[in-house]
Design a protein around this nucleic acid. Sequence first.
DNA 1: GCTCCTCATGACAACGTTGACATACGCTGT
DNA 2: ACAGCGTATGTCAACGTTGTCATGAGGAGC
Lengths: 342, 342
Amino acid sequence: MSTHYGARPTMNDVAKRAGVAPKTVSRVVNGEPGVSEATLARVRAAIAELGFRRNDGARSLRSGRTASIGLLLEDIADPFSSQLNRAVEEAARSRGCLVLAGSSAEDPVRERELALTFCSRRVDGLIVVPAGDDHRYLLPELTAGLAAVFVDRPARRIEADAVLTDNVGGAREGAAHLIRHGHRRIGFLGDLPHIPTAAERLRGYREAMTGAGLPVSPEWIVMGSTGPAEVGAAVERLTSAQVGVTAVLAGNNRITVGVLRALSAQDRGRIAVVGFDDLELADLLSPGLTVVVQDPEALGRAAAELLFGRLAGDRRPPRELRFRTRLVARGSGEIRPGTACG
Amino acid sequence: MSTHYGARPTMNDVAKRAGVAPKTVSRVVNGEPGVSEATLARVRAAIAELGFRRNDGARSLRSGRTASIGLLLEDIADPFSSQLNRAVEEAARSRGCLVLAGSSAEDPVRERELALTFCSRRVDGLIVVPAGDDHRYLLPELTAGLAAVFVDRPARRIEADAVLTDNVGGAREGAAHLIRHGHRRIGFLGDLPHIPTAAERLRGYREAMTGAGLPVSPEWIVMGSTGPAEVGAAVERLTSAQVGVTAVLAGNNRITVGVLRALSAQDRGRIAVVGFDDLELADLLSPGLTVVVQDPEALGRAAAELLFGRLAGDRRPPRELRFRTRLVARGSGEIRPGTACG
DNA sequence: GCTCCTCATGACAACGTTGACATACGCTGT
DNA sequence: ACAGCGTATGTCAACGTTGTCATGAGGAGC
C-alpha cells in the first residue's frame, strides 16, 4: 500500500511507478482518450498497488468547479427539511454533484455564517431556506458567479430565484374547510409573525373568514413561539368558555402536534382541527387528522432543477415558482360545532 | 466589487490593493498576530472593497486538512438518520467542521461509491451507517490516515470503532413486555435477515420467548421487505385464525407503521403491538403505542466524539460502544390476549 | 556607537492537479 | 524519400493559499 502512515500517494507517485508522466496518469484517472492499452494497464496497476485516489480539492482548485452545492435548512432533523434534503441530494447525485447541508436553526446570524462558509468552500450553487430578512451579504458572491435559489421563503433585498408554497391559498382552503362544516368561531395558531410563511398563512385564514362574511376576533389569533408549553397554553385559552372557538387551524407541523397534545389532555373531540403540513400516522389518529399538505420533495426537486439550470448557463431573469397545497380530509376537520364525538 | 463577472478576487488582488504582500493578507484573514493596526485596517478595507473570500479549497490543499467529515446514512429523510445527522452536525459545528452527508439507500455499491467520493474530497473522517458487508475497500484510506467510525451496525472485515444499539436487549425487553401481559403467541416482523440489526432483534425476541419457556413457531416470524404491502400481508397472515398470534413485535419504524395501518384496517384493538423505534404522535394513538426506543442523537454524539478523538490523535485500539434501549409503555403493549377494547 | 533582540513584513516554494502546448513516433501518399 | 498527418506522450505553468525562512527597522542595554 502506501509508503508510510499519513502519506497519500499522488499522481506523481503513480507516474513514477508506472514509468510515465503525471499527465498520463491524469488522463487515465479521468477516462480521457488517447492512452494506449499497454500504458493504461500499467497505470491502472500502479494506481491499485499504491491505493491512489485523486485529490478533488486540488482538482477543483485547478478547474474552478467544486461539483458541490450548499443546502441551508432550518433544521436538518425536521421532516420538511430532511425530505427537501433528500430530493436535492437525489438531483445532485444524478449530476455527479455533492451536497453540503447545514442547519440555520432559524437564526439569521447562523444562516449568514453557514452560507458564507459554503461560499468559502466555493460551492457552485446555494439552495437556501432563509431565516434572515436581508440577504445582501450574498451580493459579492452572486456577482462572482454563485447561483442561488431560495426555497419556502423568498430572498430579501436581493433578486433571486425562489420556489415557494402557496401558503395563502393553503390556509384559505384549510379555514374554508372548517367554515364549510359549520364553524364560525375558528382559532388560528401561527408561528412568529415576522416569518413570511406564518404571515401568509394568517392572511389566508383571514381571507377565508372575511370571504365567508365571518368576523374575526383578535382573541382567536395567536402568533408566537411553537414550543409545546406555549401552544398548550394558547389552546387552553382559545377553547375556554370565555373565548370559545369551536375549531382550530394550526399554522405548522410543530403547532399541530402541540394542539393535538393539548386537546387530548382535555375533552378532545369537540374541537375541530386542521393542520398545516402532514404528519406520519395522521391517518391513524381518531379522528384522523385533516391537513393541508405541501410537497417538500417537489420543492426540493424544483429548486435543484432551477439551480442546475443556472449552473448550465441559464441567464434569464429570476423566477418565482409557487406550488399548490392539497387538502387531505381525514375527519378532524369535519367535526361539527356542538357535536359530541367518541 | 469585483472586476468582472466570474472573476473572484484572490489574496494577491487584495495584497496589491492594500500595498502589502499576500502573506500579510493571509495573516489578517486568519487572525494571526504580528500585524500592525495600520496595515490591519488597510487590508481589511481592501478585503471589503473587493468582496474577497478565502478559498478554502486552496487552503486545505496547502494545509492537508479539509475541516470536513463525511456522514454516510441509510436515507437522509428517515427520522433515525436525520436525528443522527443533526447530532453529528452540531458536534462538527462546535469544532469548525463541515459535514458532507449522503444516503446509501441500503445499497452496498452506492455506499462504497459515496464513501470513496468523500475520500476523494479528502474528508478528515468518516461516520458510516453501513449497508454493505465488506468494508475492506476503506483499507487504503485508513492506512493513509482516514478516521472512521461505524454507527448502528459494526464494520465488516476491517477493525474500526463502532457505536451500536443493544438490539438484542431491546427486542428481548419488548417481547418480555408482551409476555408479561399474558401473551404466548407473539409474532415478530423484521427487516431482511441479512441486516445485522434485524438479526439481532430477532435473536432478542427468541431469547425472551425461550427464556419464558414459550415455544416459537416458525409461522410467527416474518423477515423481509418493509414495504406497506408486504407488511400488510404479513399482518393479515399472522393474525388469521390459522396462525393466531395475539401480539406483534415490530422490528423497526417502517414495519410498525405498516402494522398499525394493517390492524386499523381490520378489527384493531385485539392485537397487542410493541414497536422498535419511537414515532412522533405515538402517544396520541388510542391506545398509545408502546415502543422500544433507541436514541439516535446519543449515537450521533458518541460517534462524533469518538471520531474527533481519533482526529485529535487518539491511537488506542478500536472501541465498541453499545447503547441501551428504553421501553416506553403507552398502552398498545398492555392489551391482554382475548380482551376486547375500544 | 555597537550589539542584540523584537516586531512587522516580505520572498519563495510547495500542496496535487490539469489546460495549453510541444514533441516524437509511425504511417500514408506521391 | 519527403512532406504531412494523426496518435501517444511529455513539459510546463498555473490554480490560491500558507509554512519556512529571510529581511529590515527600531529600541534597549552597555
